[in-house]
Design a protein around this nucleic acid. Structure first.
Lengths: 198, 198
DNA sequence: GATATACCTTACCGATTGGTAAGTGTCAAG
DNA sequence: CTTGACACTTACCAATCGGTAAGGTATATC
Protein backbone atom coordinates (compact mmCIF):
# COMPACT_ATOMS: atom_id res chain seq x y z
CA UNK A 1 0.00 0.00 0.00
CA UNK A 2 2.89 2.32 0.76
CA UNK A 3 4.59 2.85 -2.57
CA UNK A 4 1.28 2.39 -4.27
CA UNK A 5 -0.26 5.31 -2.41
CA UNK A 6 2.49 7.62 -3.56
CA UNK A 7 1.96 6.54 -7.15
CA UNK A 8 -1.79 6.95 -6.80
CA UNK A 9 -1.27 10.46 -5.50
CA UNK A 10 0.90 11.27 -8.49
CA UNK A 11 -1.71 9.89 -10.89
CA UNK A 12 -4.54 11.82 -9.26
CA UNK A 13 -2.46 14.98 -9.09
CA UNK A 14 -1.49 14.73 -12.75
CA UNK A 15 -5.11 14.41 -13.79
CA UNK A 16 -6.38 17.21 -11.59
CA UNK A 17 -3.53 19.63 -12.34
CA UNK A 18 -4.08 18.99 -16.04
CA UNK A 19 -7.80 19.67 -15.85
CA UNK A 20 -7.90 22.63 -13.46
CA UNK A 21 -4.38 23.98 -13.28
CA UNK A 22 -2.03 24.37 -10.33
CA UNK A 23 -4.08 27.06 -8.58
CA UNK A 24 -7.37 25.41 -9.46
CA UNK A 25 -6.62 22.31 -7.37
CA UNK A 26 -6.23 22.20 -3.59
CA UNK A 27 -4.17 19.53 -1.90
CA UNK A 28 -7.31 18.65 0.05
CA UNK A 29 -9.07 17.87 -3.24
CA UNK A 30 -6.23 15.59 -4.34
CA UNK A 31 -6.32 13.88 -0.95
CA UNK A 32 -10.05 13.14 -0.99
CA UNK A 33 -9.63 11.75 -4.50
CA UNK A 34 -7.96 8.76 -2.80
CA UNK A 35 -10.30 8.89 0.19
CA UNK A 36 -7.52 10.35 2.33
CA UNK A 37 -6.84 13.69 3.97
CA UNK A 38 -4.51 16.37 2.69
CA UNK A 39 -2.07 15.57 5.51
CA UNK A 40 -1.52 12.13 4.01
CA UNK A 41 -0.44 13.91 0.86
CA UNK A 42 1.81 16.29 2.76
CA UNK A 43 3.33 13.33 4.54
CA UNK A 44 4.49 11.88 1.22
CA UNK A 45 5.47 15.01 -0.66
CA UNK A 46 6.12 17.74 1.89
CA UNK A 47 4.42 20.52 -0.04
CA UNK A 48 2.13 21.18 -2.97
CA UNK A 49 5.01 22.57 -5.02
CA UNK A 50 7.10 19.46 -4.49
CA UNK A 51 4.21 17.25 -5.54
CA UNK A 52 3.81 19.32 -8.68
CA UNK A 53 7.51 19.01 -9.35
CA UNK A 54 7.36 15.25 -9.11
CA UNK A 55 4.43 15.14 -11.51
CA UNK A 56 6.48 17.13 -14.03
CA UNK A 57 9.50 14.91 -13.44
CA UNK A 58 7.52 11.81 -14.25
CA UNK A 59 6.36 13.34 -17.54
CA UNK A 60 9.89 14.38 -18.34
CA UNK A 61 11.01 10.77 -17.87
CA UNK A 62 8.36 9.58 -20.30
CA UNK A 63 9.69 11.97 -22.93
CA UNK A 64 13.22 10.76 -22.38
CA UNK A 65 11.96 7.23 -22.92
CA UNK A 66 10.39 8.21 -26.23
CA UNK A 67 13.58 9.95 -27.34
CA UNK A 68 15.88 7.01 -26.58
CA UNK A 69 13.52 4.35 -27.89
CA UNK A 70 12.60 5.91 -31.26
CA UNK A 71 16.13 6.36 -32.54
CA UNK A 72 16.17 3.39 -34.91
CA UNK A 73 15.14 4.21 -38.49
CA UNK A 74 17.13 4.10 -41.69
CA UNK A 75 15.71 7.01 -43.70
CA UNK A 76 16.07 10.35 -41.84
CA UNK A 77 12.69 11.61 -43.05
CA UNK A 78 11.05 8.47 -41.76
CA UNK A 79 12.89 8.80 -38.45
CA UNK A 80 11.64 12.36 -38.07
CA UNK A 81 8.05 11.49 -38.93
CA UNK A 82 8.21 8.40 -36.73
CA UNK A 83 9.15 10.53 -33.76
CA UNK A 84 6.04 12.63 -34.21
CA UNK A 85 3.90 9.55 -34.63
CA UNK A 86 5.32 8.38 -31.32
CA UNK A 87 4.44 11.72 -29.76
CA UNK A 88 0.95 11.48 -31.17
CA UNK A 89 0.59 8.02 -29.64
CA UNK A 90 1.81 9.30 -26.29
CA UNK A 91 -0.76 12.11 -26.36
CA UNK A 92 -3.47 9.50 -26.89
CA UNK A 93 -2.18 7.20 -24.14
CA UNK A 94 -1.66 9.96 -21.61
CA UNK A 95 -4.29 12.56 -22.45
CA UNK A 96 -3.64 14.63 -19.31
CA UNK A 97 0.04 14.93 -20.02
CA UNK A 98 -0.32 17.22 -23.02
CA UNK A 99 -2.78 19.45 -21.19
CA UNK A 100 -0.45 19.79 -18.24
CA UNK A 101 2.53 20.63 -20.44
CA UNK A 102 0.46 23.22 -22.26
CA UNK A 103 -0.36 24.82 -18.94
CA UNK A 104 3.30 24.74 -18.04
CA UNK A 105 4.04 26.54 -21.28
CA UNK A 106 1.48 29.18 -20.34
CA UNK A 107 2.65 29.56 -16.76
CA UNK A 108 6.35 29.31 -17.30
CA UNK A 109 6.99 32.97 -16.69
CA UNK A 110 6.12 32.19 -13.10
CA UNK A 111 8.86 29.58 -12.77
CA UNK A 112 11.14 30.90 -15.49
CA UNK A 113 13.80 31.64 -12.92
CA UNK A 114 13.66 28.31 -11.11
CA UNK A 115 13.11 25.11 -13.06
CA UNK A 116 13.20 27.12 -16.26
CA UNK A 117 13.22 24.97 -19.31
CA UNK A 118 13.65 21.52 -17.73
CA UNK A 119 12.47 18.91 -20.18
CA UNK A 120 11.92 21.02 -23.26
CA UNK A 121 15.45 21.94 -24.20
CA UNK A 122 16.95 18.46 -24.81
CA UNK A 123 13.68 17.45 -26.41
CA UNK A 124 13.78 20.31 -28.94
CA UNK A 125 17.49 19.86 -29.57
CA UNK A 126 16.90 16.22 -30.38
CA UNK A 127 14.23 17.21 -32.89
CA UNK A 128 16.50 19.80 -34.46
CA UNK A 129 19.17 17.14 -34.97
CA UNK A 130 16.62 14.76 -36.48
CA UNK A 131 15.47 17.41 -38.92
CA UNK A 132 18.96 18.48 -39.89
CA UNK A 133 19.72 14.86 -40.72
CA UNK A 134 17.40 15.17 -43.70
CA UNK A 135 19.55 16.10 -46.73
CA UNK A 136 17.49 19.09 -47.92
CA UNK A 137 17.48 20.50 -44.37
CA UNK A 138 21.19 20.09 -43.72
CA UNK A 139 21.86 23.72 -44.67
CA UNK A 140 19.05 25.04 -42.41
CA UNK A 141 20.08 26.98 -39.33
CA UNK A 142 18.99 25.75 -35.92
CA UNK A 143 16.26 28.37 -35.74
CA UNK A 144 15.02 27.69 -39.26
CA UNK A 145 14.72 24.06 -38.29
CA UNK A 146 13.02 24.94 -35.03
CA UNK A 147 10.51 27.15 -36.83
CA UNK A 148 9.42 24.16 -38.89
CA UNK A 149 9.47 21.78 -35.93
CA UNK A 150 7.31 24.14 -33.95
CA UNK A 151 4.63 24.09 -36.61
CA UNK A 152 4.30 20.32 -36.32
CA UNK A 153 4.52 20.39 -32.56
CA UNK A 154 1.82 23.04 -32.45
CA UNK A 155 -0.45 21.19 -34.85
CA UNK A 156 -0.19 18.05 -32.75
CA UNK A 157 -0.46 19.51 -29.27
CA UNK A 158 -3.18 22.01 -30.03
CA UNK A 159 -5.32 19.24 -31.42
CA UNK A 160 -4.58 16.99 -28.47
CA UNK A 161 -6.07 19.43 -25.97
CA UNK A 162 -9.11 20.36 -28.06
CA UNK A 163 -11.04 17.10 -27.92
CA UNK A 164 -13.66 18.15 -25.35
CA UNK A 165 -14.21 21.50 -27.03
CA UNK A 166 -14.58 19.99 -30.48
CA UNK A 167 -16.98 17.28 -29.36
CA UNK A 168 -18.96 20.00 -27.63
CA UNK A 169 -19.21 21.99 -30.84
CA UNK A 170 -19.68 19.30 -33.47
CA UNK A 171 -20.90 16.28 -31.51
CA UNK A 172 -19.40 12.86 -30.89
CA UNK A 173 -19.97 11.43 -34.36
CA UNK A 174 -18.41 14.34 -36.20
CA UNK A 175 -15.47 14.34 -33.80
CA UNK A 176 -14.88 10.63 -34.43
CA UNK A 177 -14.66 11.42 -38.13
CA UNK A 178 -12.29 14.28 -37.41
CA UNK A 179 -10.18 12.08 -35.18
CA UNK A 180 -9.84 9.56 -37.95
CA UNK A 181 -8.85 12.19 -40.51
CA UNK A 182 -6.32 13.95 -38.30
CA UNK A 183 -3.28 11.65 -38.13
CA UNK A 184 -3.14 10.99 -41.86
CA UNK A 185 -3.47 14.70 -42.54
CA UNK A 186 -0.71 15.45 -40.06
CA UNK A 187 1.43 12.89 -41.85
CA UNK A 188 0.59 14.50 -45.17
CA UNK A 189 1.26 17.96 -43.80
CA UNK A 190 4.69 16.98 -42.54
CA UNK A 191 5.82 15.24 -45.67
CA UNK A 192 4.66 17.98 -48.02
CA UNK A 193 6.20 20.68 -45.84
CA UNK A 194 9.48 18.81 -45.45
CA UNK A 195 9.82 18.17 -49.16
CA UNK A 196 8.87 21.72 -50.08
CA UNK A 197 12.37 22.83 -49.13
CA UNK A 198 14.98 21.95 -51.56
CA UNK B 1 -13.30 58.57 -15.25
CA UNK B 2 -16.35 56.32 -14.94
CA UNK B 3 -16.49 54.42 -18.22
CA UNK B 4 -12.73 54.60 -18.44
CA UNK B 5 -12.30 52.74 -15.16
CA UNK B 6 -14.43 49.88 -16.40
CA UNK B 7 -12.32 49.60 -19.51
CA UNK B 8 -9.13 49.78 -17.50
CA UNK B 9 -10.39 46.96 -15.29
CA UNK B 10 -11.09 44.86 -18.37
CA UNK B 11 -7.62 45.52 -19.75
CA UNK B 12 -5.92 44.65 -16.48
CA UNK B 13 -8.08 41.56 -16.01
CA UNK B 14 -7.34 40.32 -19.53
CA UNK B 15 -3.61 40.64 -18.94
CA UNK B 16 -3.63 39.00 -15.54
CA UNK B 17 -6.03 36.20 -16.43
CA UNK B 18 -3.89 35.44 -19.48
CA UNK B 19 -0.70 35.28 -17.45
CA UNK B 20 -1.86 33.47 -14.32
CA UNK B 21 -5.22 31.92 -15.17
CA UNK B 22 -8.63 32.42 -13.60
CA UNK B 23 -7.76 30.82 -10.26
CA UNK B 24 -4.29 32.36 -10.21
CA UNK B 25 -5.62 35.91 -10.00
CA UNK B 26 -7.59 37.40 -7.13
CA UNK B 27 -9.98 40.28 -7.65
CA UNK B 28 -7.93 42.14 -5.06
CA UNK B 29 -4.88 41.82 -7.31
CA UNK B 30 -6.80 43.20 -10.28
CA UNK B 31 -8.06 46.04 -8.10
CA UNK B 32 -4.66 47.12 -6.86
CA UNK B 33 -3.41 47.06 -10.45
CA UNK B 34 -5.44 50.28 -10.90
CA UNK B 35 -4.62 51.54 -7.42
CA UNK B 36 -8.14 50.70 -6.26
CA UNK B 37 -9.70 48.15 -3.92
CA UNK B 38 -11.42 44.95 -4.94
CA UNK B 39 -14.78 46.46 -3.97
CA UNK B 40 -14.39 49.01 -6.74
CA UNK B 41 -14.15 46.08 -9.13
CA UNK B 42 -17.14 44.35 -7.60
CA UNK B 43 -19.09 47.58 -7.87
CA UNK B 44 -18.59 47.56 -11.64
CA UNK B 45 -18.88 43.87 -12.44
CA UNK B 46 -20.76 42.24 -9.58
CA UNK B 47 -18.60 39.13 -9.40
CA UNK B 48 -15.31 37.66 -10.59
CA UNK B 49 -17.10 35.31 -12.96
CA UNK B 50 -18.99 38.14 -14.61
CA UNK B 51 -15.78 40.09 -15.08
CA UNK B 52 -14.20 37.06 -16.70
CA UNK B 53 -17.22 36.68 -18.96
CA UNK B 54 -16.91 40.26 -20.14
CA UNK B 55 -13.23 39.77 -20.89
CA UNK B 56 -14.09 36.79 -23.08
CA UNK B 57 -16.90 38.72 -24.73
CA UNK B 58 -14.52 41.47 -25.73
CA UNK B 59 -12.16 38.97 -27.34
CA UNK B 60 -15.05 37.33 -29.14
CA UNK B 61 -15.98 40.71 -30.62
CA UNK B 62 -12.45 41.17 -31.92
CA UNK B 63 -12.64 37.83 -33.71
CA UNK B 64 -15.95 38.79 -35.26
CA UNK B 65 -14.29 41.96 -36.52
CA UNK B 66 -11.51 39.97 -38.16
CA UNK B 67 -14.01 37.62 -39.80
CA UNK B 68 -16.16 40.37 -41.29
CA UNK B 69 -13.26 42.56 -42.37
CA UNK B 70 -11.06 39.95 -44.10
CA UNK B 71 -13.68 38.68 -46.53
CA UNK B 72 -12.40 40.48 -49.62
CA UNK B 73 -9.97 38.47 -51.77
CA UNK B 74 -10.32 37.15 -55.29
CA UNK B 75 -8.43 33.86 -55.20
CA UNK B 76 -9.84 31.44 -52.58
CA UNK B 77 -6.42 30.16 -51.59
CA UNK B 78 -5.24 33.72 -51.03
CA UNK B 79 -8.37 34.49 -49.02
CA UNK B 80 -7.72 31.48 -46.80
CA UNK B 81 -4.07 32.32 -46.26
CA UNK B 82 -4.91 35.98 -45.73
CA UNK B 83 -7.24 35.05 -42.89
CA UNK B 84 -4.44 33.25 -41.10
CA UNK B 85 -2.08 36.15 -41.69
CA UNK B 86 -4.70 38.34 -40.07
CA UNK B 87 -4.89 35.95 -37.12
CA UNK B 88 -1.12 35.98 -36.84
CA UNK B 89 -1.16 39.78 -36.78
CA UNK B 90 -3.84 39.76 -34.10
CA UNK B 91 -1.76 37.42 -31.95
CA UNK B 92 1.13 39.88 -32.20
CA UNK B 93 -1.03 42.92 -31.44
CA UNK B 94 -2.87 41.31 -28.53
CA UNK B 95 -0.38 38.87 -27.06
CA UNK B 96 -2.51 38.14 -23.98
CA UNK B 97 -5.51 37.21 -26.04
CA UNK B 98 -4.04 34.00 -27.45
CA UNK B 99 -2.84 32.90 -24.04
CA UNK B 100 -6.24 33.46 -22.51
CA UNK B 101 -8.02 31.56 -25.26
CA UNK B 102 -5.59 28.69 -24.86
CA UNK B 103 -6.44 28.58 -21.18
CA UNK B 104 -10.11 28.64 -22.05
CA UNK B 105 -9.52 25.68 -24.34
CA UNK B 106 -7.85 23.86 -21.46
CA UNK B 107 -10.51 24.77 -18.91
CA UNK B 108 -13.56 24.41 -21.05
CA UNK B 109 -14.67 21.17 -19.46
CA UNK B 110 -15.43 23.32 -16.45
CA UNK B 111 -17.85 25.54 -18.37
CA UNK B 112 -18.79 23.03 -21.06
CA UNK B 113 -22.37 23.09 -19.84
CA UNK B 114 -22.74 26.85 -19.58
CA UNK B 115 -21.13 29.13 -22.13
CA UNK B 116 -19.91 26.10 -24.00
CA UNK B 117 -18.47 26.93 -27.35
CA UNK B 118 -19.26 30.66 -27.56
CA UNK B 119 -16.93 32.24 -30.07
CA UNK B 120 -15.25 29.19 -31.53
CA UNK B 121 -18.08 27.62 -33.50
CA UNK B 122 -18.86 30.43 -35.98
CA UNK B 123 -15.14 31.06 -36.24
CA UNK B 124 -14.35 27.48 -37.24
CA UNK B 125 -17.35 27.28 -39.55
CA UNK B 126 -16.14 30.38 -41.35
CA UNK B 127 -12.74 28.77 -41.84
CA UNK B 128 -14.32 25.56 -43.13
CA UNK B 129 -16.24 27.57 -45.72
CA UNK B 130 -13.09 29.42 -46.73
CA UNK B 131 -11.22 26.15 -47.22
CA UNK B 132 -14.02 24.45 -49.14
CA UNK B 133 -14.02 27.40 -51.53
CA UNK B 134 -10.65 26.18 -52.82
CA UNK B 135 -11.33 23.95 -55.88
CA UNK B 136 -9.25 20.95 -54.79
CA UNK B 137 -10.91 21.04 -51.36
CA UNK B 138 -14.48 21.30 -52.60
CA UNK B 139 -14.99 17.54 -52.24
CA UNK B 140 -13.59 17.48 -48.69
CA UNK B 141 -16.03 16.77 -45.89
CA UNK B 142 -16.43 19.31 -43.11
CA UNK B 143 -14.31 17.24 -40.76
CA UNK B 144 -11.60 16.62 -43.34
CA UNK B 145 -11.44 20.37 -43.82
CA UNK B 146 -11.41 20.97 -40.09
CA UNK B 147 -8.58 18.49 -39.60
CA UNK B 148 -6.43 20.55 -41.96
CA UNK B 149 -7.55 23.87 -40.48
CA UNK B 150 -6.72 22.67 -37.02
CA UNK B 151 -3.15 21.94 -38.03
CA UNK B 152 -2.64 25.54 -39.10
CA UNK B 153 -4.49 26.90 -36.11
CA UNK B 154 -2.36 24.78 -33.82
CA UNK B 155 0.89 25.76 -35.47
CA UNK B 156 0.03 29.43 -35.09
CA UNK B 157 -1.40 29.46 -31.58
CA UNK B 158 1.15 27.12 -30.06
CA UNK B 159 3.92 29.31 -31.31
CA UNK B 160 2.18 32.46 -30.09
CA UNK B 161 2.22 31.30 -26.48
CA UNK B 162 5.75 29.93 -26.51
CA UNK B 163 7.72 33.16 -26.80
CA UNK B 164 8.84 33.41 -23.15
CA UNK B 165 9.78 29.74 -22.99
CA UNK B 166 11.75 29.83 -26.22
CA UNK B 167 13.65 32.97 -25.30
CA UNK B 168 14.41 31.32 -21.99
CA UNK B 169 15.86 28.27 -23.71
CA UNK B 170 17.67 29.76 -26.67
CA UNK B 171 18.20 33.41 -25.71
CA UNK B 172 16.91 36.66 -27.19
CA UNK B 173 19.07 36.68 -30.30
CA UNK B 174 18.18 33.16 -31.37
CA UNK B 175 14.52 33.82 -30.69
CA UNK B 176 14.61 36.92 -32.89
CA UNK B 177 15.95 34.75 -35.69
CA UNK B 178 13.23 32.19 -35.03
CA UNK B 179 10.57 34.87 -34.98
CA UNK B 180 11.72 36.08 -38.36
CA UNK B 181 11.72 32.60 -39.86
CA UNK B 182 8.33 31.61 -38.50
CA UNK B 183 5.72 33.52 -40.56
CA UNK B 184 7.29 32.69 -43.90
CA UNK B 185 7.55 29.04 -42.92
CA UNK B 186 3.92 29.04 -41.81
CA UNK B 187 3.01 30.51 -45.18
CA UNK B 188 5.09 27.85 -46.91
CA UNK B 189 3.56 25.12 -44.76
CA UNK B 190 0.03 26.19 -45.59
CA UNK B 191 0.56 26.49 -49.33
CA UNK B 192 2.36 23.17 -49.67
CA UNK B 193 -0.21 21.37 -47.55
CA UNK B 194 -3.14 22.94 -49.37
CA UNK B 195 -1.77 22.08 -52.80
CA UNK B 196 -0.85 18.53 -51.77
CA UNK B 197 -4.51 17.54 -52.08
CA UNK B 198 -5.96 16.77 -55.46
C1' DG C 1 7.92 -6.96 25.33
C1' DA C 2 10.02 -2.36 24.44
C1' DT C 3 11.44 0.51 20.46
C1' DA C 4 11.33 2.34 16.12
C1' DT C 5 9.47 3.47 11.77
C1' DA C 6 5.98 4.19 8.14
C1' DC C 7 1.45 5.88 7.33
C1' DC C 8 -2.20 8.45 8.39
C1' DT C 9 -5.54 11.31 11.52
C1' DT C 10 -7.53 15.18 14.34
C1' DA C 11 -6.74 19.68 15.75
C1' DC C 12 -5.10 23.79 14.82
C1' DC C 13 -2.84 28.09 12.58
C1' DG C 14 -2.44 32.67 10.05
C1' DA C 15 -3.31 34.30 5.55
C1' DT C 16 -6.21 34.88 1.71
C1' DT C 17 -10.27 33.92 -0.96
C1' DG C 18 -14.87 35.92 -3.09
C1' DG C 19 -18.53 38.50 -1.47
C1' DT C 20 -21.95 41.56 1.69
C1' DA C 21 -23.22 45.67 4.35
C1' DA C 22 -22.95 50.12 5.36
C1' DG C 23 -21.25 53.96 4.71
C1' DT C 24 -18.44 58.54 2.46
C1' DG C 25 -17.65 62.01 -0.78
C1' DT C 26 -18.85 64.19 -5.27
C1' DC C 27 -21.62 66.11 -8.44
C1' DA C 28 -25.76 67.19 -11.09
C1' DA C 29 -30.91 67.92 -11.10
C1' DG C 30 -35.04 69.58 -8.90
C1' DC D 1 -30.95 73.30 -0.10
C1' DT D 2 -32.28 68.85 -0.74
C1' DT D 3 -32.34 64.61 -3.19
C1' DG D 4 -30.43 60.91 -5.50
C1' DA D 5 -27.40 58.51 -8.44
C1' DC D 6 -22.60 57.28 -9.04
C1' DA D 7 -17.95 55.77 -7.72
C1' DC D 8 -15.65 54.24 -4.29
C1' DT D 9 -14.19 53.17 0.75
C1' DT D 10 -13.75 50.74 5.40
C1' DA D 11 -15.32 47.06 7.98
C1' DC D 12 -16.68 42.68 8.09
C1' DC D 13 -17.87 37.71 7.00
C1' DA D 14 -17.66 32.53 6.43
C1' DA D 15 -15.02 29.45 3.76
C1' DT D 16 -10.90 27.77 2.06
C1' DC D 17 -6.00 27.97 1.28
C1' DG D 18 -1.22 25.61 2.31
C1' DG D 19 1.12 24.10 6.18
C1' DT D 20 2.55 22.75 11.36
C1' DA D 21 2.12 20.06 15.60
C1' DA D 22 0.97 16.32 17.96
C1' DG D 23 -0.64 12.38 18.12
C1' DG D 24 -2.66 7.35 16.86
C1' DT D 25 -2.13 2.63 14.86
C1' DA D 26 -0.03 -1.01 12.60
C1' DT D 27 3.96 -3.68 11.36
C1' DA D 28 8.71 -4.89 11.62
C1' DT D 29 13.14 -5.18 14.59
C1' DC D 30 15.83 -6.16 18.38
Amino acid sequence: MAVNTREQFLDAAETLFAERGFYGVSIAAIGTELGLTKQALLHHFGSKEKLYGEVLGRISDRFDAITTQTSAASDPTEAFVAYFIELYGASLEEPHQTRLLMRELLDNRRRADTAGTWYLKPFLEHLIRLLQAIPSWRTASEMEALAMIYQFLGALNYYAISAPTLTGIFGDDAYAELDQAFPSQLDQLMRSALSARG
